[in-house]
Amino acid sequence: MPRIKTRLNGLGQINPMLVIFFLSLSILLFFVFITLSNMIVQQIVSDFSGLIEAVRDSSVLEAIFLSLYSGFLATLISFILGVPTAYLLARKDFIGKRIIESILDIPVVVPHTVAGIALLTIFGANGLIGDPLESIVQFRDALAGTVVAMLFVSAPYLTNSAREGFQSVDPRLENAARSLGAPLWKAFLFVTFPLASRHLLTGSIMCWARAISEFGAVIMLAYYPMVGPTLIYERFTSMGLSESRPIAVLLILVTLTIFVILRMISSGWRRYDRD
């Protein structure tokens, strides 16, 4: 008997702390799962035809596509700007680095309607950036505005994940490559970048997800063209729950499918972590 007990303890099977932790996990999972699945199941059970109608409604599909597309553009820009930023923050020490890191994180804590107002002030026709660019690109009520709003709120997720990724790569590997004659860019591109790739993908998924779900900042800067969340809000205010829920369910189903696929791909990349 005592032997078995020690063994079990050793495996951490019935450790009371873990039991409590497992309970926390169950509550959290239940909370998220029940909220979303209840809506989806209710929609399918009580109003399946409404869902079919939403699938057939071209303006619904356009709005959802626009969400995915502008979210993708925001992620692409976040990637192009965020990866080099993250590398610098992970590898170099310089004056004011901590402050810079905090500033880059601010969009995560700012209420998004406030972010929207701030963005409109900067990117509006008379704004600091919007004014000089007025003849080239319009931000207010345009795709560019949607992308900028999404970029603002979602970029920190990619940058932070990429920084963690680069930090997890041993600098000695880079140094080894350089000592063998590789220039810095080659060491970055062929050693550090692939080793951090899973973090980069995870960060990109988070960034994209955040961009798609953004509403507060987008609606301030670009009410039109309507993205998914704006359309859901619109349908709710003008026509009520029965008209808006199918779109919400559809948006959840579409994004969920994409994210599950991406998650599977990213866990397939786990082998890079071990190298």
Partner: peptide
């Protein structure tokens, strides 16, 4: 429907 109002954004700014 709201998504089809398509205001000309050079002339009109529409909000909820």
């Amino acid at each position: 429907k709201s998504e089809n109002i398509n205001p000309n954004s050079d002339k009109i700014m529409m909000r909820s």
